[in-house]
Design a protein around this nucleic acid. Structure first.
Lengths: 130, 130
DNA sequence: ATTCTATATTCGGAATATGGAATAAGGATC
DNA sequence: GATCCTTATTCCATATTCCGAATATAGAAT
């Protein structure tokens, strides 16, 4: 297959702010259900599902069903590495243009757990074990 | 500025087979006039100019006028590095999908110089010095 | 000044991407 | 079975990209 075409199609899947955020979330959380991403990014479920489908078709993420939930994860650690490279790369390009980039981090306060049901289960489990 | 948005806009500029080929040409040739790219990629001049404009607006290439010609080059070596990374990255993703990538190299036969005027000048100069 | 050559821009129709709304599908639970 | 819950898909209007054709511009040469 034509390498440039394939590279371009991967880049096309990457070239979207929300999809980048999703990938970033998956590169720190290892895996996440859709409702987790929903609460993390504060976006509608259907919308996230759409973006996940794009990423899935590009081969960047994979899904795994577990009961009622579907867990997404990166298909390779190379994806996380690529994101890291991309970050510094675009920062460098931005600097040439006299701009300073700020990547809004979507870190969650550990004391304030994600309100998605799955997280609540885990929290409840942990507290029951005390 | 929002980092994800800027990254996405850079990726959007990259996400095109012809633009990738142009960048690759510039990462080996250091710099090239439009007519050189034209003969190298076998594409119409106006079309190449359009793609160069996209790359220029994204901050990936810069132009320098010299007499009648305009020479393009990468704005940073990081761009060439990024292309290299992208190549192995998309190869890895492709492998996960059971595909094998072939990047058609646009190497020029050194015995068969580029027919663009600038190249002819250089060739003529070299031959005159013998 | 006119012409030539290299490059850039504009216009426009087709194709594709975007994102909202509604709906469907797949399991769990009762 | 009926009913939730989570996730996926479809539909649709709008916006954007793609790329060919024509045209514009900028500098060189006559």
């Amino acid at each position: 297959m034509d390498g440039h075409k394939h590279s371009a199609s991967i880049l096309k899947a990457l070239a979207h702010p929300v999809r980048l955020q999703i990938l970033e979330a998956l590169s720190t959380d290892i895996q996440a259900c859709v409702c987790h991403l929903e609460s993390l990014l504060q976006l509608r479920q259907a919308y996230i599902s759409q973006q996940l489908a794009t990423l899935r078709e590009a081969g960047l993420v994979q899904d795994r069903r577990e009961g009622m939930n579907v867990y997404y994860s990166l298909t390779a650690t190379a994806v996380a590495d690529g994101l890291q490279n991309l970050r510094s790369f675009s920062s460098e390009i931005a600097k040439l243009q006299g701009k300073e980039l700020r990547f809004k981090s979507i870190e969650r306060d550990p004391e304030e757990p994600c309100p998605c049901p799955r997280c609540h289960e885990k929290i409840a489990l942990l507290e029951a074990q005390r």
